[in-house]
Structure formats: structure tokens, C-alpha cells
């Protein structure tokens, strides 16, 4: 499948999952970050540049539709895509542990950053409570969702990778 079309489809599906589906189906308010999971999986399959591009596009739409300020989610998902692209071609595509662990780790970093921004905005809360009851479980769910996305995206991105390898060999 064309990479840009696949990216657009990913973004739309993730906006639906994040804003509609997981808003209704969640465990005591704990829900995974579908956009992060998709961006990490896409970046591991296609590289830093494509991952960052998808992250920026998805983050921008989240900023416009739900964000408090323009650019926050864009920057976060851009960094996530760029960082996860580090694992591109470094592991077998069948390996779901690496993207899942990356998504979970990046999920923790993202939530910590948002927690800091909210704290700087003057909102008080118990950090340990939020960390234990929301940030960690949510990051874990994001990791699991990323593993699922990784399996789904693999056959969609592999033909393109193979085609590129053939061109390179020639």
C-alpha cells in the first residue's frame, strides 16, 4: 500500500480510536494512546523520517480538534516517531517486543511531560497516585496496542520495503 495513504488511514483510525472508541471503552478511565502506538509501529517499519511525518500529522490534527495549544501534541508525536525510527532495520520485523517496549517507554515519557506542563499550569495533584494509577497502566496498554498495530502494519509496509531493496540491489 502507498505509504502516504497508509499514514493517512492510520491517522484517521487513531483519531477515531482516541476520541470516540476509547472514550467509551476503557478501564476506570485508563486507556491506551492509539496515536502513539501507531506512530511508533509505523516508524519501526518505515524509518525516522516517515515516523516523524506521521507523528507530526497526527499530532497536528489532535491539537486542532482537542488540544489546549497548537503544537504540543505535534511536537510530542513528532519526537516519538523520530525516536522510534532508530529501531528501523535494526531488528527483525517479526519482533513485536521492541516496538511494544518503545511505545510503553515513550508513553511514560509523554505522560510525564504532560504532567509537568499541567503542574506548571498551576494544577495540583498527587504525582505518585497519578503515576501508579494512570501513567504506568496507560503506557502498558499503549505498548500492547502497539504490538497489535505492528502485526497489522507489517504486511502493509513489507512490499514497499522489499521493492526498495530490489531497487537498491540493481
Amino acid at each position: 500500500m502507498n505509504r502516504k495513504l497508509l499514514g493517512l488511514l492510520c491517522v484517521l483510525v487513531c483519531i477515531y480510536l482516541d476520541s470516540v472508541f476509547f472514550a467509551r471503552i476503557n478501564i476506570l478511565g485508563i486507556r491506551p494512546d492509539a496515536m502513539l502506538a501507531a506512530v511508533v509501529s509505523f516508524a519501526v517499519h518505515t524509518g525516522s523520517a516517515a515516523g516523524a511525518g506521521l507523528g507530526a500529522a497526527g499530532g497536528l490534527l489532535l491539537d486542532v480538534l482537542f488540544g489546549r495549544s497548537l503544537g504540543l501534541y505535534t511536537a510530542i508525536y513528532l519526537c516519538a516517531g523520530f525516536g522510534a525510527g532508530y529501531f528501523y532495520k535494526k531488528f527483525y520485523a517479526d519482533n513485536v517486543i521492541i516496538p511494544a517496549a518503545s511505545a510503553a517507554a515513550l508513553g511514560v515519557v509523554k505522560e510525564l511531560l504532560l504532567a509537568l506542563i499541567v503542574r506548571l499550569g498551576g494544577v495540583s495533584y498527587s504525582f505518585l497516585n497519578v503515576f501508579g494509577r494512570y501513567i504506568l497502566p496507560s503506557a502498558l496498554l499503549s505498548g500492547l496496542l502497539c504490538a497489535l498495530f505492528h502485526v497489522i502494519l507489517k504486511p502493509l509496509t513489507m512490499p514497499q520495503i522489499k521493492r526498495r531493496q530490489v531497487v537498491l540491489r540493481r
Partner: peptide, 30 residues
């Protein structure tokens, strides 16, 4: 080069986020 581009983009976006964090009107594109 890609890292530099990404870093510049993040710095610009962070700046944009700070500038737009207060109450504001939506732009035509948004």
C-alpha cells in the same frame, strides 16, 4: 541532517505551543 530538522521543528512547535496556550481564536485553516 534529519536530526537537526527534527530538533528545529520541535523547538518551533514548542514555541508555537507556548504562544498559542492562551485563549485565542481559531485560524481559518484550523
Amino acid at each position: 541532517k534529519p536530526l537537526l530538522i527534527a530538533l528545529s521543528a520541535v523547538v518551533l512547535l514548542a514555541l508555537l505551543a507556548v504562544l498559542t496556550s492562551k485563549e485565542r481564536k481559531l485560524t481559518f485553516i484550523e
